[in-house]
Simulated assay, not measured.
Amino acid sequence: MLMHEINKPTVVLRTNRGLLTCTRDADQRVSVDMGKPLLNWQDIPLTEEMDTTALPLSGNPTACSMGNPHCTFFVEDLGSVDVAAIGPMIETNPLFRNRTNVHFVQVIDRGRIRLRIWERGGGIPLGSGSCCCGAAIGGIRRGLLDDTVEVQCDGGTVKVQWDGIGSVFLTGSVKPVFYGKIVL
């Protein structure tokens, strides 16, 4: 919406993590440079030093940060996971100093995943950009996924690209979901 209102194909947004460059393509999709993922245990942050590609929790999830913490479980059958029961237990596990977003991922093939999310402090959303990135990063680090991944969430599908070194790019369609007016 902002790009449309100012008639520019690129905007830079200031976030707590830093500046994010958003670019609109010819098909009106928006790609966001989400920055480099944080992969070291102290940057996520975890409470103790460990390998973040296989945390010492049942299911050996991965962890990373995109400015907020992410914990990703890879499962055979996403439909059998009780996200509402398991999510809050993992979110508040003492391993996560600031709690964590929790992802449950079923790998469809090397370029596609299905994702369900327990969002830190928010419950089960239809989707989340940073969670899509965190889930794809976990699969790429584990060697389960290629560097471009279609992420299917309950609310729609996005594309995540990460070369394993630099910035993560999140691309998807956008549409307004709310209009409001601030009265001073």
Score class of each variant (00 low, 15 high):
N16K: 13
W41S: 00
I90K: 01
A63S: 11
S80T: 15
C71D: 02
G121Y: 12
S65G: 05
W162Q: 01
G129N: 01
T92L: 06
T100C: 04
I44W: 03
P37S: 10
V12I: 14
P45I: 05
L170I: 07
N16S: 14
M3W: 07
D33Q: 08
T21H: 08
V83D: 03
K36A: 12
N60F: 11
V177Q: 11
P9N: 15
Q28L: 11
K181A: 02
G138E: 04
L46R: 06
S31E: 14
P45Y: 05
I124C: 11
M89R: 11
L38F: 09
S167R: 04
P125W: 00
V151M: 03
L19Q: 15
Q106M: 09
L78G: 06
L170G: 00
G111L: 15
G156Q: 05
L184P: 10
T23W: 07
G67M: 08
P125C: 08
G122N: 14
R14Q: 15
D25M: 08
R120W: 04
D33F: 08
L57M: 12
V177M: 07
D146Y: 00
G59P: 01
R110C: 13
N101L: 02
V83N: 09
T53S: 13
A26K: 06
C22H: 07
T15S: 11
L126G: 03
R29M: 10
G138C: 12
D33E: 11
V11Y: 06
V183H: 13
K159M: 08
W118P: 01
N93H: 07
T157S: 06
F73R: 01
